[in-house]
């Protein structure tokens, strides 16, 4: 689906965010990008989305650039617009007819459990609900590739777990390809099929861990075992 190869990116302030970063995500995979704060995870995600241009290396897509949905760490909603208008933004920008756009945005809101909240403004919604609108907005454009940048980091644990389960359900139902940036070992161990562990800045991939099946819930032995192995790899990559 998408491959990053030999990517380097230095920002104007002189910070070398990533260096020799290479990884690929296959169609239909759920891959987590895990690493300590400031290791260049978000930069990698923006490079994958084409929002940043690399100084060196290439980003290639298997069959041309896919439709991409992007979810930021905070909800990034338009405070002046209701939930429906927010979810409809990608469709409005693509000049989809209003009637169809409204129907698709409303369907996306319903899929994230927000039916009936179409005309609520962001300030009237809880943190978790705002993040759901943000996910609905990403889904409204019917993406093939969903990029999420620590989307649940600012939420409480119960909300975070609920949203994680919903994300898994959406991934299974839609056959999405998901690249999920996180600094949470437990989140990555439960949600993803593969975990890419990044080194501290400048970030590159230290380990590519394929997780076994049987992780049906957060406390399943296979999930706990996956956490142990991810933690060990993360610790050794940070220490190295």
């Amino acid at each position: 689906m998408i491959a990053l190869s030999g990517i380097a990116k230095r920002f104007a302030n002189g910070v070398q965010a990533v260096s020799d970063l290479s990884f690929a995500v296959e169609r239909g995979e759920f891959v987590s990008l895990l690493g300590p704060s400031g290791c260049g995870k978000s930069t990698a995600l923006r490079l994958a989305a084409g929002l940043l241009q690399p100084d060196a290396g290439t980003v290639t897509y298997a069959n041309g650039k896919p439709e991409i949905g992007f979810v930021f760490q905070d909800h990034t909603l338009m405070p002046w617009a209701d939930a429906l208008t927010n979810a409809r933004l990608p469709l409005d920008l693509k000049h989809v007819a209003r009637g169809e756009a409204d129907a698709r945005a409303a369907a996306a809101l319903a899929r994230v459990g927000l039916a009936g909240f179409e005309h609520a403004f962001p300030r009237e919604l809880s943190g978790g609900m705002k993040m759901r609108v943000s996910i609905a907005r990403a889904l409204a454009a019917e993406p093939q590739l969903l990029l999420l940048d620590e989307p649940f980091a600012a939420l409480d644990e119960i909300t975070r777990n609920g949203l994680g389960d919903d994300l898994l359900k959406l991934w299974r139902e839609d056959g999405l390809t998901v690249l999920f940036v996180t600094h949470s070992v437990s989140e990555s161990s439960y949600l993803s099929q593969r975990v890419l562990v990044m080194t501290p800045r400048p970030g590159r991939i230290a380990a590519d861990i394929v997780l076994p099946g049987g992780r049906d819930n957060r406390l399943a032995p296979a999930t706990i075992e996956a956490q142990r192995s991810i933690s060990a790899t993360l610790n050794s990559s940070v220490a190295a």
């Binding site: 084409g50 992007f70 930021f72 905070d74 990034t76 933004l89 990608p90 920008l93």
Partner: peptide, 13 residues
């Protein structure tokens, strides 16, 4: 919001 601006770029606005 820079992220919102990025989002519009992502959708080719």
């Amino acid at each position: 919001d820079f992220n919102l601006i990025d989002l519009t770029r992502l959708y080719g606005a």
